[in-house]
Amino acid sequence: MKAAVLVEPQQPLVIQDIAVRKPGPREVLIRTAAVGVCHSDLHFTDGIYPTPVPVVPGHEAAGVVEAVGSEVGTVKPGDHVVTCLSIFCGYCEHCVSGFLSRCVSPRVRPQPDDEPRLVREQVPVQQLLGLGAFAEQMLVHENACVAIRRDMPLDRAALIGCAAVTGYGAVTRTSRVRPGDTVAVIGCGGIGLCAINAAAIAGAGRIIAIDRVPGKLELARAFGATDTVLADGDVVADVVDMTNGGVHHSFEAVGLKVTTEQAFRMLRRGGTANVIGMIPPGVKIELRGTDFLSEKRIQGSLMGSNRFPVDMPGLVDFYLQGKLHLDKLIASRIGLESINDALDELRRGELARSVVVFDGVA
């Protein structure tokens, strides 16, 4: 199969022919139909977050099951599926408590002594985050994918695998936005736009979109934002003034020190700041201690605190009902050979989502 491989950090991905082995007892072989190019991939390709190389990046994908291992009971050949990096074991403390996205059990992730899933010229090739979706095929644990309705377009379904489930989950699961609450979302990329969309679905009374690119703010209104703030001044003061004291919930979808601190400072008394963005290792966040006397909270949101086997089919239903605006999220559809151009567009911050589409897949 052909795959886009990161050979060295801070270097372009290279299209290579990779051999993929047959599925193990609890593994699923998927023919990739589409994969979104997510900003999180940049953290690894640019070396901000270290990862072993060579490695196939990509994690926001959908496809069709080609083969399953002898013990797989959740999907079968021919099923349309969405993958998720929140691979869960079902047995650990987090899983049995209902927090599947927190699972880090080694039993569902490749181990050094395992037979490599991917090989090129007898050299093992890693799968980033256990998926490696910038490839014509994915070999994954069965608890890394979920079957969906066949009437769901797979290029749109791919976006549910990260952007939609992360943004929606942050709003509905991590922070539990209620009807009438005020919400601010900092960063109107794919995940931020999905958070705005989710806030609208949840019935938020006021949804404030914040970004430095005017075009993204226009797009945010199409996703449900009631107000927009161009990030060229005192963003916190603008939001506090607009809401007469601050918002109930803020969502940081950029991954920077300054925007994380802004997310906390724009809260009203009792408000909650949710950090979705991947803050680089070593960065420290500074908060005013007196703000905690107002019962303000700040918390992380890992992949939207998702329970993806339940959440993703529900998000498919929302899309088919016209509530989840995935069509507007796709800025361009490209072939795998254009992957480096798509990563450059992410670095410039100009587009919401590019989607790699593979030919000949349903």
Rank of each mutant, 00 (worst) to 15 (best):
A62G: 12
H80A: 07
G73Y: 03
D41G: 01
P77N: 05
D46P: 03
A67M: 10
V81A: 09
P52M: 06
L42I: 12
H80E: 10
Y49L: 08
G73P: 10
G78Q: 12
V64I: 14
D79I: 03
V72Q: 12
A67D: 15
L42C: 10
G63N: 08
K76E: 13
I48P: 01
V68A: 09
A67P: 15
H80C: 13
G47T: 04
H80D: 13
G73W: 04
K76A: 14
T51V: 11
P54L: 00
V64S: 13
A62Q: 09
T51R: 06
V56H: 05
A67F: 03
A61E: 15
H43V: 03
G63C: 05
S40M: 03
T74W: 09
V65I: 08
P50K: 03
Y49V: 14
V65W: 05
V65D: 14
T51C: 14
H80F: 09
A67G: 14
V55Q: 03
H59T: 13
P52L: 02
I48L: 11
A67C: 11
T45L: 00
A62S: 15
V64T: 09
G73K: 12
G78F: 06
V68C: 05
I48M: 07
T45D: 00
H59V: 07
V68M: 06
F44C: 00
H59Q: 01
A67Y: 03
V65M: 10
G63E: 11
V53A: 08
G73D: 15
G73R: 11
V55R: 02
V68P: 13
D79H: 08
F44D: 00
D79E: 09
S40E: 02
A62R: 07
P52E: 10
V72A: 05
K76P: 08
V68Y: 07
P54G: 00
L42H: 10
E66Q: 15
E66V: 08
V56D: 14
V55C: 12
V55M: 04
D46Q: 14
T51Y: 11
V56I: 15
P54M: 01
T74A: 08
S40Y: 09
V55S: 04
D41A: 02
E71H: 12
V72I: 09
L42Y: 07
A61K: 04
S70M: 07
Y49E: 07
P57R: 03
E71T: 13
V72F: 11
F44L: 01
H80R: 12
V64E: 15
V81C: 05
A62T: 10
E71Q: 15
F44W: 03
G63A: 05
P54K: 02
Y49K: 06
D46N: 14
P77Q: 04
G69W: 09
G78E: 14
G47A: 06
P54R: 02
